[in-house]
Design a protein around this nucleic acid. Structure first.
Length: 437
RNA sequence: GGUCCGGUAGUGCAGUGGUUAACACGUCUGCCUGUCACGCAGAAGAUCGCGGGUUCAAUCCCCGUCCGGACCGCCA
C-alpha cells in the first residue's frame, strides 16, 4: 500500500489508507482509546472504541508502549470533536513494527526539561522533538537555496580532501592523524584548494564540507568540527565583488526561507525572519570604533585594536540596527597583523571583510593575493616557509585575480532560528570534551 | 586555555553534620462515557559523580580528581 504522510491526510477523507509512525501518546479511557501517531510531517489521532468488535485492537493498544513504531490501516474521517486538526483515523489493523523497550532517558518533547549534555548524550531521541526535526528541514532548505543561487550564477560544487599532508597555516590549530607510518592533518579549511581551483581555471567554485579546528574553544558558537560553506571565484576587481556576491546570495536564500518557513519559524522558534536589503552597510574598523566610542562609550583594549572581540561584534550589530536598520554589517580594514597572509593588501590594508549577523561573525572573506612575489613576501612575514611551498606553486604559472569567503552553516542556522547554542543547531556536536555519540 | 558556577531516583530540581532525602514530570497498577498537556488514587524507583581527609557520625565541611554549564580568548 502506498505510504501516506500525516500532513496530507485531508486529501483522503473517507478513504482507507495506511500510515506509519511513532506512537506519540496513548490515552486509554474506560470506553475508548486514543493513540496519537506521529511521523515527520505531523500528528494524527487514532480512535478505537472499546467493544467486542474491536477487542483485538484494544488489546494491541493496551499493550503498546509510547515511542514504539506502528503501521496503521484505517479510514480517515472528519470529526469536529477532535482538537488535533479536526479529524481522526478509525483503524482496522494496527501492527507494532518496533517496540520501545525501556523508559526514555529524557523527555524530548520539552527541550527545557533536560540539560543540554543529557540531550546530546541521547541525541537520537532529542532529535525526535518537533522543533529539532523542523530545524534541520529549514537548514537543508537554506543550504539548498544558497546552492541554487550559485548554480544559477555558473558556480560548480567541488570536493577537496580533508586529509592533508601539511598543516595549512599556523599548524597549531589542526588535528593530527596517524597516517600509516607518518602524520597527516585534518583540513581546518579548504582555503588552499579553493585557490588551487582558481589557478586551474575553474573560475567559480564552492564547497559545503566539514572543517576541523583543534581549538579548545568553549563558547555557544564554536565546535571542533563544523560545516563550512566555502566559495571562491575569479576575475574580480576588488573585495567589493566578493561582498556583493555574498549579500546577494544570502538575501536570495533568506527571502526563499522566509516565503516557505517565515510563519512556521515565528510560531515554533518565536523569532522573525527578517529579509535583508542590499547593499548591506559597510564600515571600516577604525570608523566603527569611533562610532562605538561616541555612541556607546566602548573602547577596545589597546592591544586588540585592529581586530574585533565578542563585545564589539555585539555593539556593531546594535550600531547597524540603529543607524541602518540592518541585521547585517560588513566590517573592513582590519589590521594586517590579524589577517591571513593570503589576503591581498592595498596600502597596507587587507582587502577583506568580516560579516556580522545579529552580533556574531558568520564570515571572513577577502580578495586573495595572487601575485607570486608579493604573496611570498607576506608568507615570509608571517613566518611561513616549507609548509606553504606547494601552495605557492599555484601562483607561478598564471593565476586569475580572485576572492572568496566561508560561512559557518551551523552558526547560520543558530542565528536564523535564535537557538541559544551551536550544540543544538548541528546534527551532532563535536567539542573539546565531546566526541560521542 | 582563563574566570565564575554546578554534579542528589529515568529527567529536572529541593534539602540536611545524626531517625523514613522532599517536590514535579516520567514509569508501573487500578479506576474513569471522546480524551486531546485527559483526570483521579496508589506503588516502585537514589552506591546523594569518584577518591581521600576532618568528625562519635559526612550526601552536607576540607583537599584532590573526573564530568558538565555560563562568559571571555581563538574563529566559521
Amino acid at each position: 500500500m502506498e505510504r501516506i504522510y500525516i500532513k496530507d491526510l485531508r486529501d483522503y477523507f473517507g478513504k482507507e489508507i495506511e500510515l506509519q509512525g511513532f506512537v506519540d501518546n496513548i490515552r486509554d479511557l474506560q470506553y475508548v482509546q486514543f493513540l496519537i501517531l506521529r511521523d515527520y510531517t505531523g500528528k494524527v489521532q487514532v480512535t478505537i472504541e472499546k467493544n467486542e468488535e474491536n477487542s483485538k485492537l484494544n488489546a494491541i493498544v493496551s499493550g503498546i508502549t509510547i515511542e514504539s513504531t506502528v503501521k496503521i490501516k484505517g479510514t480517515i474521517v472528519e470529526n469536529e470533536k477532535v482538537k488535533l486538526n479536526g479529524y481522526e483515523v478509525i483503524p482496522s489493523v494496527i501492527t507494532e513494527t518496533s517496540r520501545c523497550l525501556e523508559e526514555l532517558p529524557l523527555n524530548f518533547k520539552d527541550s527545557s526539561s533536560a540539560l543540554i549534555d543529557t540531550r546530546l548524550d541521547n541525541r537520537f531521541l532529542d532529535l525526535r522533538n518537533d522543533n529539532n526535526i523542523l530545524m534541520f528541514k529549514i537548514q537543508s532548505y537554506l543550504v539548498q537555496c544558497m546552492r541554487e543561487y550559485l548554480y544559477e550564477n555558473d558556480f560548480s560544487e567541488i570536493h577537496t580532501p580533508k586529509l592533508i599532508g601539511a598543516a595549512s597555516e599556523s599548524g597549531s590549530e589542526v588535528f593530527e592523524v596517524k597516517y600509516f607510518d607518518r602524520l597527516a592533518y585534518l583540513a581546518q579549511s579548504p582555503q588552499f584548494y579553493k585557490q588551487m581551483a582558481m589557478s586551474s581555471g575553474f573560475d567559480r567554485i564552492f564547497e559545503v564540507a566539514p572543517s576541523f579546528r583543534a581549538e579548545n574553544s568553549n563558547t555557544n558558537r564554536h565546535t571542533t568540527e563544523f560545516t563550512s560553506f566555502d566559495l571562491e571565484f575569479s576575475y574580480i576587481d576588488s573585495y567589493e565583488d566578493v561582498m556583493q556576491l555574498e549579500e546577494n546570495m544570502l538575501t536570495y536564500a533568506i527571502t526563499k526561507v522566509n516565503e516557505r518557513y517565515g510563519e512556521i519559524i515565528k510560531n515554533a522558534f518565536g523569532t522573525e525572519v527578517v529579509v535583508p536589503k542590499t547593499p548591506f552597510p559597510r564600515v571600516k574598523l577604525p570608523d566603527l570604533y569611533k562610532e562605538l566610542k561616541e555612541k556607546y562609550n566602548f573602547e577596545m583594549p589597546s592591544l586588540d585594536v585592529g581586530d574585533m572581540n565578542a563585545e564589539s561584534e555585539k555593539l556593531a550589530y546594535r550600531y547597524a540596527m540603529e543607524k541602518y536598520n540592518s541585521e547585517f554589517i560588513f566590517v573592513t580594514d582590519f589590521s594586517p597583523k590579524k589577517r591571513a597572509f593570503y589576503h591581498m593588501r592595498k596600502d597596507g590594508i587587507p582587502q577583506g571583510f568580516d560579516l556580522i549577523w545579529r552580533g556574531v561573525e558568520i564570515t571572513t572573506g577577502a580578495q586573495r593575493e595572487h601575485r607570486y612575489d608579493i604573496l611570498k613576501e607576506q608568507a615570509k612575514e608571517k613566518g611561513l616557509g616549507a609548509d606553504v611551498e606547494f601552495y605557492m606553486n599555484f601562483f607561478k604559472y598564471g593565476c586569475p585575480p580572485h576572492g572568496g569567503f566561508a560561512i559557518g552553516v551551523d552558526r547560520l542556522t543558530m542565528l536564523l532560528l535564535n537557538i541559544p547554542t551551536i550544540k543544538e543547531s548541528m546534527f551532532l556536536f563535536r567539542g573539546p570534551n565531546r566526541l560521542t555519540p
